[in-house]
Design a protein around this nucleic acid. Structure first.
Lengths: 258, 258
DNA sequence: TCTAATGGTTCATTATTTGAACTCTTATTT
DNA sequence: AAATAAGAGTTCAAATAATGAACCATTAGA
């Protein structure tokens, strides 16, 4: 692994649940030597990517990340644009909503809204989503360049549950169906007991730049409820796409595959 | 410079105004060899810190940054907490507002609201602020540990304008005054013609974790206007601190220097 | 068609990174 | 109160990864 990769992998040890870690702990988890770990952390700290609590000596992610994220947001203001819509939709559906952004052919979750109820699906910000086995992934693949789609279905498709579809042709069918329907459906393909629907958020070139998904326990998911959620999520994803680009969804869509 | 530092310095070439750059351009600006630059970019891309436009081959900041920034935000939700208050204050004051976060003893701007008027102060997201010559810096230094304050005033203080106060003792006086007043005032200390007031945002331990500032052209800044803005910005910074920590501002404040 | 500019790659040379062993500080146990 | 343990941080010879001049490929423009 490159030194840069090592440094970044240190950053990836920090999670919502464990946002602060000590030097020894970081070294242990990363598998790097303590001296190496420290040197990397110091390099990261110099640029504000991590900071150290003056009191506890624990390290945590730094504001330098916020800063760069804001610069990106200025170009792709998905989060800012989407937030009000997501909040509204979350209030209406009372199920877990998550917004994911495309980056280098992967999807990663950048925002989550959880309903205030006991039995709900939990999704963590920062999670990478497999493309073939999540509603978000299918919705995304329904609006990507041919080459990206091919690459996504090229490798062996991991079976996460007994329900995961691992046959590329069947996945393609699901993608085609999602494209026609306007939203994707995934029944327990990634996690047992979780049903999801998702819509694609399109960029100015008509290709997907992110997805919006609703994840709910299967016990609360009748066929009718799924369809209702699907329509809702698709409508909001459409709305976000239009706000983001200042153009009609169909105009955007027609721009892809041209 | 460490390899990690080099990689991060590549990220820092991207700005709001130039969010997308080509390989040769990045190499030229960073001063690194093209091969080196490329290798670093590939390492960064592997972790979603940059992404490459499939069409134009230009590089831009990636969603991996958004992801990590969100994890940080979960711990220090300054931005989320502050945004509605900032927006409201921006509407009322009709001047430039900027929110900065403390990171490793520096302040960097993570959000800006500009008024819709021709003559206004422009601040860029991502800017680092000198501590001795900005209202934000003074407000920050009024609520930091003794050691941080000493470090900030130790080096030579750069004169940015003819108005910049570069005598450490005078700066200390300004800090003391800000602490008593509840907000700081900076008259053209960083840029000619710009007047700013700022309030500190406190963390759970009573020390500053960020600042909120109003920057206005001096031509619109009477003594009375400055005082009014100062009181407003201090009140909002207080409010944000309380929301953030769920405790009264004075309770927080008393916790520091204990 | 030719030229120039950019993206991307190779591999021997060079410089940075590595990690075992060390100290220092702080918390915990006896 | 002394002993022990555990974590933070440092050092320097050895090992490894980074470097960059020169290369090719593709695209844009003259």
């Amino acid at each position: 692994m490159s030194t840069v990769g090592k440094a970044i992998s240190l950053l990836e040890l920090f999670t919502i649940d464990e946002p602060e870690l000590g030097l020894t702990e970081i070294a242990r988890r990363s598998g790097f030597d303590k001296a190496t770990t420290r040197r990397l952390l110091v390099s990261l700290a110099r640029h504000g990517f991590v900071e150290q609590d003056a009191e506890t000596r624990l390290y945590r992610l730094g504001a330098g990340l916020t800063r760069l994220a804001r610069i990106r947001e200025a170009r792709f203001p998905i989060l800012q644009t989407a937030l009000p819509f997501i909040r509204e939709l979350a209030a209406v559906t009372a199920e877990t909503l998550h917004l994911s952004e495309a980056s280098n052919g992967s999807l990663l979750t950048v925002h989550v809204e959880h309903p205030a109820r006991a039995n709900r699906v939990n999704v963590n910000v920062g999670e990478y989503l497999p493309l073939h086995s999540t509603a978000s992934g299918i919705a995304y693949l329904a609006h990507v360049r041919e080459a990206v789609l091919k690459a996504a279905l090229a490798g062996p498709l991991a079976p996460f549950t007994a329900h995961t579809v691992t046959d590329p042709t069947a996945v393609l069918d699901a993608i085609e169906a999602a494209r026609k329907r306007g939203y994707s459906i995934m029944d327990q393909g990634y996690e047992e007991g979780v049903h999801s629907v998702a819509g694609a958020i399109l960029g100015a070139d008509g290709y997907a730049i992110g997805t919006l998904a609703i994840a709910a326990p299967v016990v609360r998911t009748s066929r009718a409820a799924a369809a209702e959620r699907g329509k809702a999520v698709a409508a909001v994803a459409r709305e976000i796409s239009e706000r983001l680009n200042g153009e009609g969804f169909n105009v955007l869509k027609s721009r892809a595959f041209a």
